[in-house]
Design a protein around this nucleic acid. Structure first.
Length: 227
DNA sequence: GCATTAACCACAG
DNA sequence: CTGTGGTTAATGC
């Protein structure tokens, strides 16, 4: 499952690691483990001692948290990106979980090594900050989406997000079950089912099981804004 | 009151 | 894991 990585020649090198010196790259290689994960595998789990920063090279991942009543999917993200910085850098335990939703390549990076790069290499640190900023802004959007829109609007928003930010195509296969999509946009699986069917009947999207094609993006945009 | 929205429940593929 | 129908509670004219 684990291989010794060759970071210098990695084709998935992150913007941040491009600023590492040769010496630092060697340190990275010595303090990092690579793994290929199948869909549905946990990368890390809420409540467990956190000791690694994860670099997601490729693949799609859901970040989720066990709330007082039910599961909440916080965000869906794809590589290349780092995972777990907020919960590993300054916290003892993972405050949320990360689970793959498709074939995924990850690197587990020792937190002390990562911390050292941030402290000693300004350009590296700058790239990390940029990524954290983007993530926070995107979460602000989701916050508004979840709290100020009706169910149709929230689902429309999620479909547009998947199209634009994840797949970059109008047709894609839902990475989540209806239930999980509900956990993502704060609704029930029944409502997700019904609304996807409504969109289908209104010729806004084409739904075949988990396969989605967006037919009328303009209308979907309007729905995502107004419900 | 009346309509709309969405959650909850139950049952069936 | 999904889809559907009935019911119910909350909210807004």
């Amino acid at each position: 499952m684990f291989d010794n990585p060759s970071c210098i020649n990695c084709v998935f090198k992150s913007p941040a690691t491009k600023f590492l010196s040769d010496n630092e790259i060697i340190q990275l290689e010595q303090n990092c483990a690579v793994a290929e994960l199948k869909p549905g595998e946990k990368i890390f789990k809420q409540g467990v001692f956190s000791s690694n920063i994860i670099y997601l090279k490729k693949g799609i991942v859901k970040l989720h948290i066990e709330g007082p009543y039910k599961e909440q999917i916080l965000k869906i993200t794809k590589g290349p990106t780092y995972l777990g910085i907020p919960t590993t850098f300054d916290e003892k335990y993972y405050r949320y979980s990360a689970t793959t939703v498709e074939e995924t390549g990850v690197c587990f990076i020792n937190i002390e090594t990562f911390r050292k790069f941030v402290q000693e290499n300004g350009k590296f640190a700058y790239e990390i900050i940029i990524e954290l900023c983007k993530s926070e802004i995107s979460l602000f959007k989701k916050c508004i989406n979840r709290s100020q829109k009706n169910a149709r609007g929230r689902i429309a928003d999620a479909l547009l997000f998947l199209k634009e930010e994840i797949y970059e195509e109008s047709s894609f296969r839902l990475p989540l079950t209806r239930n999980e999509l509900g956990d993502y946009v704060n609704t029930t699986r029944e409502s997700v089912s019904r609304i996807l069917n409504e969109f289908h009947n209104e010729k806004i999207i084409k739904v075949t099981g988990r396969d989605i094609s967006i037919l009328n993006e303009k209308l979907l945009n309007i729905i995502s804004k107004t419900g």
